[in-house]
Deep mutational scan, measured.
Amino acid sequence: GFTKEQQRLGIPKDPRQWTETHVRDWVMWAVNEFSLKGVDFQKFCMNGAALCALGKDCFLELAPDFVGDILWEHLEILQKE
């Protein structure tokens, strides 16, 4: 899971503390893990605080249908851990 990747890359547990690099690493991991298609990494050029502050509607505009939902749900789980 993502926990191993977080440990390997030194990504903080709390997504709100992520840098732009951490956000990119997470999106890249999720794309590979969940076989997601059509993700534009440029749209995720922000730090974790900005990403978490978007709200669901704005977040879902960053990625194609269903893909955004998967990313959003995973981000929500990470914020609760």
Rank of each mutant, 00 (worst) to 15 (best):
G1K: 15
G1S: 12
G1V: 09
G1I: 10
F2W: 11
F2S: 05
F2M: 07
T3G: 12
T3I: 14
T3R: 10
T3H: 11
K4C: 09
E5M: 13
E5Q: 09
E5F: 10
E5C: 09
E5Y: 12
Q6Y: 11
Q6F: 10
Q6C: 09
Q6V: 10
Q7E: 15
Q7T: 11
Q7R: 12
R8N: 08
R8P: 09
R8L: 10
R8I: 08
R8W: 08
L9E: 06
L9M: 11
L9K: 08
L9W: 07
L9D: 06
L9G: 07
G10R: 11
G10C: 08
G10H: 10
G10S: 11
G10D: 14
I11R: 09
I11A: 05
I11M: 12
I11D: 03
I11N: 06
P12Y: 08
P12D: 05
P12E: 05
P12T: 02
K13W: 09
K13Y: 06
K13C: 12
K13V: 09
D14W: 03
D14R: 03
D14C: 08
D14I: 02
D14T: 03
P15N: 02
P15F: 00
P15K: 02
P15C: 06
P15D: 00
P15Q: 01
P15E: 00
P15Y: 00
P15H: 02
R16C: 12
R16Y: 11
R16N: 15
R16T: 13
R16Q: 13
R16L: 13
R16I: 12
R16F: 13
Q17D: 14
Q17V: 14
Q17I: 09
Q17A: 14
Q17C: 12
W18E: 01
W18Q: 01
W18R: 02
W18M: 00
W18P: 01
W18I: 00
W18F: 00
T19S: 11
T19D: 11
T19F: 01
T19L: 05
T19V: 03
T19Q: 07
T19I: 02
E20Q: 13
E20K: 12
E20C: 09
E20N: 09
E20I: 09
T21Y: 15
T21W: 07
T21E: 10
T21V: 12
H22Y: 03
H22K: 00
H22P: 01
H22A: 05
H22L: 02
H22N: 14
H22G: 03
H22R: 01
H22S: 04
V23T: 09
V23P: 00
V23C: 03
V23L: 02
R24A: 10
R24F: 06
D25Y: 13
D25K: 14
D25R: 13
D25I: 12
D25E: 15
D25F: 09
D25C: 13
D25W: 11
D25A: 14
W26E: 01
W26L: 00
W26D: 03
W26Q: 01
W26Y: 06
V27W: 03
V27A: 07
V27I: 14
V27Q: 02
V27P: 01
V27R: 01
M28H: 12
M28S: 14
M28L: 13
W29N: 03
W29I: 02
W29M: 03
W29T: 04
W29C: 05
W29Y: 07
A30N: 09
A30W: 07
A30V: 13
A30E: 12
A30F: 07
V31W: 01
V31K: 08
V31N: 05
V31G: 04
N32Q: 14
N32T: 12
N32E: 12
N32L: 08
N32C: 09
N32H: 15
N32P: 04
E33I: 04
E33G: 04
E33M: 05
F34S: 04
F34C: 04
F34T: 02
S35A: 11
S35I: 03
S35E: 13
L36I: 07
L36W: 06
K37Y: 06
K37C: 09
G38A: 07
G38V: 04
G38N: 15
G38L: 04
G38Q: 07
V39I: 11
V39T: 05
V39E: 03
V39A: 04
D40M: 05
D40P: 05
D40F: 02
Q42I: 03
Q42S: 13
Q42F: 03
Q42A: 10
Q42V: 05
K43H: 07
K43R: 13
K43M: 05
F44C: 00
F44H: 01
F44Y: 05
C45D: 14
C45V: 11
C45A: 15
C45H: 15
M46Q: 05
M46A: 03
M46K: 05
M46W: 03
N47I: 02
N47V: 01
N47E: 08
G48D: 01
G48A: 00
G48I: 00
G48P: 00
G48W: 02
G48Q: 01
A49Y: 06
A49N: 08
A49I: 07
A49K: 15
A49D: 12
A49R: 13
A49L: 09
A50Q: 14
A50H: 10
L51Y: 00
L51G: 00
L51R: 02
L51A: 01
L51S: 00
C52N: 04
C52L: 12
C52H: 04
C52F: 05
C52K: 03
C52D: 02
C52Y: 04
C52P: 01
C52E: 03
C52Q: 04
C52R: 03
A53H: 07
A53K: 13
A53M: 10
A53L: 07
A53I: 04
A53Q: 10
L54I: 10
L54Q: 06
L54S: 04
G55Y: 04
G55P: 14
G55F: 00
G55C: 14
G55E: 15
K56C: 01
K56P: 04
K56R: 14
K56M: 05
D57V: 10
D57G: 10
D57R: 11
D57E: 14
D57Q: 10
D57L: 07
D57P: 09
C58G: 15
C58R: 14
C58P: 11
C58F: 10
C58W: 09
C58I: 10
F59H: 00
F59K: 01
F59S: 01
F59N: 04
F59E: 00
F59P: 00
L60Q: 15
L60A: 13
L60F: 10
L60E: 09
L60M: 11
L60T: 14
E61D: 13
E61H: 10
E61K: 15
L62I: 11
L62R: 09
L62A: 04
L62G: 04
A63T: 09
A63V: 14
A63L: 13
A63E: 03
A63I: 12
P64D: 09
P64E: 07
P64N: 06
P64V: 01
P64Y: 02
D65E: 14
D65Y: 12
D65A: 14
F66L: 13
F66E: 14
F66D: 15
V67H: 06
V67D: 08
G68E: 00
G68R: 05
D69Q: 12
D69P: 14
D69I: 12
D69F: 06
D69V: 10
D69N: 14
I70H: 10
I70W: 05
I70P: 06
I70S: 07
I70G: 02
L71V: 00
L71Q: 00
L71P: 01
L71S: 02
L71K: 00
L71F: 02
L71W: 00
W72T: 00
W72R: 03
W72S: 02
W72A: 04
W72P: 00
W72D: 00
W72N: 02
E73H: 05
E73Q: 12
E73D: 15
E73W: 08
E73P: 01
E73G: 10
H74L: 07
H74G: 05
H74Y: 04
H74E: 13
H74T: 06
L75S: 02
L75D: 01
L75R: 01
E76N: 15
E76D: 13
I77V: 15
I77K: 15
I77F: 13
I77D: 12
I77L: 15
I77P: 05
I77Y: 12
L78S: 04
L78E: 04
L78D: 04
L78C: 08
L78F: 05
L78K: 03
L78M: 09
L78I: 10
L78N: 02
L78R: 03
